[in-house]
Simulated assay, not measured.
Amino acid sequence: MSHCNALVIGTGPAGLMAAEELARAGCRVTVAEAKPSVGRKFLMAGKSGLNLTKDEPASMFNSAYADAAAWLQPMLAKFDARAVQDWARGLGQDLFTGSSGRVFPVAMKASPLLRAWLARLDGLGVARQTRWRWTGWTECGAARFDTPHGLQELAADVTVLALGGASWARLGSDGAWAEILAARGVELAAFAPSNVGINLDWSAHMAPHLGAALKSVRWQAGDLSSRGEATISRRGLEGGGVYALTPALRAGATLSVDLVPDLTAEVLTKRLASKGAKVRLSHWLRNGLRLPPAKLALFFEMTQGAPLPREKWVATLKALPVRTAGLRPMDEAISTAGGVARRSLDDGLMLRAIPGVFCAGEMLDWDAPTGGYLLTACLATGRWAGRAAAQVAKVR
């Protein structure tokens, strides 16, 4: 059995941030990762452009975390969107802010930032172990790992768990840790998919539109609405516009879409009134409103081509019911809700049932839409847990 001051299990953004804070506090830190390389989900997230955070007022930013906003607020206040940007620039990354307020590296990839970050951790003396899969603790409290060289045991003064949620298992977030913690008396909230695609049973009518984007639309589900695009995929709808509505859809809310959000019902009614009584619905949508093919296809797919009374044309355009067939599987979700319950943790994110063990990142029970909120909270909770763990390590 070997020993270190601080052990971090998981090398996503939360884990690496915790390791950095512990090392800066003077702890001898080891990070352990089950996969052959670190930060796999982080790298995957950056494939289509690494959205680091969102530049908007703190009140708007915090509201994205819904019921967990009050819990996360102190952590986000200490490492907010501005701090995330300063941190990335400190790692040599030039940034830009898009028209929506989303902040990206100019490189539009996660790999340069991750390389710079790992170099910084190397300089701080952080040791890394890959292909070390955590399987729990020994009777004496040492962490137990399955490794290519057999069973390894590592005792630590403090441990930070940053094991992710329960999606994208092939990248390391498989949620297997839940059984280990539950067996030790840690209260958990059930995992549920978040930021995930929607299943729809398309007819053959939709085949020519697969891959097309639905733009300039507003989606609605329950109390949630989202002005964002979605792509028509073979299995349904994908994209930020519908991802943001996952909490309401999980709760059983129905989905609708406003295909012309920039035109009020009053304006549409007046435009329709100016047309002759014999105008056909398809002609008005195509030539009068100039709806693009993807929107036209969705409209007639959802109305099933049934005759629609003229007096319902406008209302249907403004709130077209979308007949979903449920959410995509949890392992395909960008993130998951559920995890370690707030009351299982003290104010420093230490487990009440297992003193000296802290949790951070997506394994905590909070939820947020895409758009920089996920990554910012992972970094903020990792920093918070790392600093709290460093204080406990010093006390010991």
Rank of each mutant, 00 (worst) to 15 (best):
R89S: 12
T135V: 11
D146Y: 00
K54P: 01
P148W: 06
Y65K: 01
W137Y: 02
P112T: 10
A110G: 05
G98I: 00
R120C: 03
L50H: 06
V103L: 12
R120L: 10
S59D: 15
L22P: 06
D94L: 12
L154C: 04
A116L: 07
K54W: 03
R120H: 07
A127W: 01
L22E: 10
V38T: 14
D86V: 06
A34R: 14
P74A: 08
D55Q: 11
S59A: 14
G98S: 13
G136K: 09
R28T: 13
T30S: 11
Q85K: 05
L43A: 08
A156V: 05
L76Y: 02
D80Q: 01
R133Q: 12
E21I: 02
N51G: 06
S111Y: 00
L113Y: 08
G98T: 08
V158I: 10
L43V: 10
L91H: 14
Q152M: 05
R28D: 15
V106E: 13
T97W: 04
G141W: 10
N62H: 10
W134C: 09
D80T: 01
A88T: 07
L124I: 09
L22F: 10
S111V: 04
T53K: 05
L118P: 05
G136I: 11
E139V: 02
D86P: 00
T159W: 03
W71I: 10
K54C: 15
A110R: 02
L16P: 08
A23S: 15
V103H: 12
F79R: 02
V38P: 04
A32P: 03
R89A: 12
E21N: 11
A142F: 05
V31Q: 04
L76K: 02
P57T: 12
A119H: 09
A110H: 03
A107P: 01
A81K: 05
A58C: 08
R40F: 04
G123T: 06
W137G: 00
A142T: 02
T138F: 01
